[in-house]
Nucleic acid binder design. Structure first.
Lengths: 252, 252
DNA sequence: CATCATTAGTCTGCATGCAGGATGTGTCAA
DNA sequence: TTGACACATCCTGCATGCAGACTAATGATG
């Protein structure tokens, strides 16, 4: 039970009442903090520190230091670090752990895995679309669009993630949701690590096409649109690297 | 480093020197046991007990009991159990953990995720095929065929897994390998849990088609063959359930 | 001055103590 | 016989002690 709740917390710890309405009761959300163990707390704190950049790539993390910082003993911190290592957010160093530094190949690999899974999610989500879900998705899409016009990168990325996660949750396939969350986390970290700062202007249009297909409950088209979105995303990464060839490449 | 090694150990703890030759040096294999921590040892022992059926579905596992059985303290056992819970092999119970009992829907979900990923693996593996890899794959396929004729279910399942894992490793996409291993583990457990005893006769033919496509280095065809294989597998599950409708369904 | 050895400090991995909570049992009363 | 309550037991999650390994800095020596 607790595990399921933890699982449904999304990548950036975005308040996700809207998501919850479709997949879980609101009671679970409030229950979250109540039943959380110290290990969970440490896990989410470290994870957030990694994903929001306050623990930069390659930084070595020590159990004792974090335990002191969090005001808890080493045990829960140690458990949290082990969990993050199994998720590839932290990597083993000669002694201890460090924030993983995925290279360009890792990013491409993760995107290659994400593509068919996002397609599957879109296809499975199509028959589950209802008016309420469409409203939510449209609102998220609108936020994404506005954030792009305001050039608010943080809000844009958040809305981008929310859009995909909403569709994933709609798919109703828990295994898919789990798997995609893991891969997506790696993409986010790899984007940091490779200093990938792609413009998301095109992404807005591509999201719109996915949304259109979902509105028609056309699973095949939604799948194709999602896969094309990921393919274009990958191409934009490659283009950007080609343009910035001046910097030293980080290939394996 | 150690994590990477652990990751490349395959599902059933099959001796996999052949796999290793393509993705890692033999030194890593020998190093495996040397650098293994007690936590790793406990992890693999429990995992194997789950996957070979000596810990039946739903059995509750206790830290102290296993610690006593393994002759180690509670700490490493506890870590191993946490890891297995994050991989969904164990599920949280009100107090403690139990061997997860995936239902039919879980199995279908996992198969749905596996399908496009196996397809991707086959497509990516095609350009990496060389004579040596073909020999290995053919040998595995031959073992699968013979095991089926001998009606040796254990050997058949082992060869089946090896076949897929060999292709996954050939893909060269580490993220894909990781992801597929997790999903595949869940499929194996769900197969146990739902008492799925499908005949693998058709699978032999479908593997042959994948192998043919790989021999021609035809990625598209290999992908299609792998996806069809998984689709057929799913259909066989559904057919079997339909036939055995007499038993009480285990739907959610 | 450069290089090597020693040593102090730090960290991980494991063992173990302990409190809080859940479970099951036995006893007692109705 | 049945229901309720107290108690004993078990187990988890957390804190902490400790040994071994690794790091790094300092001093000794050619």
């Amino acid at each position: 039970m607790r595990l399921m709740i933890a699982r449904s917390v999304n990548l950036m710890n975005i308040p996700n009442e809207e998501h919850m309405r479709t997949v879980a009761s609101a009671a679970d959300v409030t229950e979250l903090d109540a039943t959380q163990t110290l290990t969970d707390a440490a896990y989410y704190r470290i994870r957030e520190m990694i994903l929001d950049g306050s623990l930069p790539i390659g930084t070595s993390v020590s159990v004792v230091a974090l335990a002191g910082k969090f005001g808890m003993s080493r045990s829960p911190v140690r458990s949290a670090i082990e969990r993050l290592m199994s998720e590839r957010l932290l990597s083993r160093t000669t002694s201890g752990a460090a924030v993983a530094a995925p290279d360009r190949l890792d990013l491409l690999d993760a995107l290659a895995v994400r593509a068919p899974l996002e397609g599957l999610a879109a296809r499975l989500a199509a028959p589950h679309i209802d008016e309420h879900a469409l409203d939510d998705l449209s609102a998220i899409h609108e936020r994404f669009d506005r954030a792009m016009r305001d050039e608010n990168q943080t809000a844009a990325r958040r809305a981008d993630l929310e859009f995909h996660q909403y569709i994933q949750n709609l798919s109703g396939n828990e295994c898919l949701t789990d798997t995609l969350e893991r891969v997506q986390t790696q993409v986010v970290l790899a984007a940091y690590s490779t200093a990938w700062t792609t413009s998301k202007r095109q992404a807005v249009l591509e999201h719109a096409r996915i949304l259109d297909a979902l509105r028609e409950q056309d699973g095949e088209t939604a799948q194709a649109a999602a896969e094309r979105h990921l393919a274009n995303l990958t191409n934009r990464v490659l283009d950007e690297w080609k343009r910035h060839e001046s910097r030293s490449p980080r290939g394996r």
